[in-house]
């Protein structure tokens, strides 16, 4: 798997209302890599993800996935949103099965894969529950299982834990890290939370707003054998503070 974003710019509107939201973004993501884009709101980080997903088209530059140009959404790029991530009228299992049945896979295969991926996210017991009967964290786990079930080459996560309580968010970060280690998935995470990015991603890009651009890149070389410990370890806290002050100096807003 090789995702290449080359010199992508994006502007919305026309004429006098033309607004440049992304300027000259270049990124590269390979199999098994976990990358994060961090920035304040308005830094265009979600737009980068929507461009990769094919939900928007770049104004300039190109995006290639395994040599093929991205022109429209497809199941090779699974996506998890922050809000409305599940279909409220479908059970957890039916949500996981949704993509598979859209692709017209056989009944037996759908049943088998649904059970497998619900099990992967630890929700085999919740198969028959409706989203409203699940906690926020469980809902996001189902959404991740649904995105994984169609076997995407890359998983796009758009602030997936942004709406969760702090404690649940921490356990979801541990869950995602564990999932990444077990399955070797490739992921691109969008977040405004520096701690989340440093905990999970091997490469962290810091984005600045007006227009959105990557201003700093960190390769995180921390020992991730114990996330709980890592969270409070000295090198981690120092790195976090360094990036936080960098972000503060960028747009003057508190993070």
């Amino acid at each position: 798997m090789h995702l290449q974003v080359s010199q992508v710019s994006k502007s919305f509107g026309t004429g006098r209302d033309l607004k440049l939201v992304l300027e000259d973004i270049s990124l590269e993501l390979v199999s098994g890599q976990f990358m994060a884009l961090v920035g304040s709101s308005g830094s265009g980080k979600s737009t980068v993800m929507r461009l990769i997903a094919g939900l928007e088209r770049p104004s300039a530059g190109t995006i290639h996935l395994d040599g093929e140009q991205v022109r429209r959404p497809g199941s090779d790029r699974g996506m998890v949103f922050q809000k409305y991530s599940l279909y409220p009228w479908l059970t957890a299992a039916q949500n996981v099965a949704f993509g598979l049945s859209l692709q017209g896979r056989g009944k037996a295969e759908i049943r088998e894969r649904t059970a497998y991926f619900l099990d992967v996210v630890g929700l085999a017991d919740a198969a028959r529950l409706l989203p409203k009967e699940l906690s926020g964290g469980m809902q996001q786990r189902v959404a991740i299982a649904r995105a994984l079930a169609t076997e995407p080459k890359v998983l796009l996560l758009d602030e997936p834990f942004g709406a969760l309580d702090l404690q649940i968010r921490e356990s979801m970060q541990e869950f995602l890290h564990d999932l990444w280690r077990r399955t070797g998935l490739t992921a691109l995470l969008i977040t405004h939370d520096i701690e989340e990015a440093l905990l999970l991603a091997g490469t962290v890009h810091i984005m600045a707003p007006r227009p959105g651009r990557v201003v700093h890149t960190v390769d995180v070389g921390l020992d991730r054998s114990d996330l709980r410990h890592l969270r409070v370890s000295q090198p981690f806290l120092e790195l976090r503070e360094e990036l936080a002050s960098r972000l503060r100096s960028l747009d003057g807003s508190l993070l």
């Binding site: 949103f81 409305y84 991530s85």
Partner: peptide, 22 residues
């Protein structure tokens, strides 16, 4: 919600199935 439609798009959905199933 646009998220519901866009989720279906990223799962490989198109046109009519999105209308009938989302």
């Amino acid at each position: 919600p646009s998220e519901l439609v866009e989720t279906a798009l990223t799962l490989g959905g198109r046109g009519l199935p999105i209308l009938t199933r989302v």
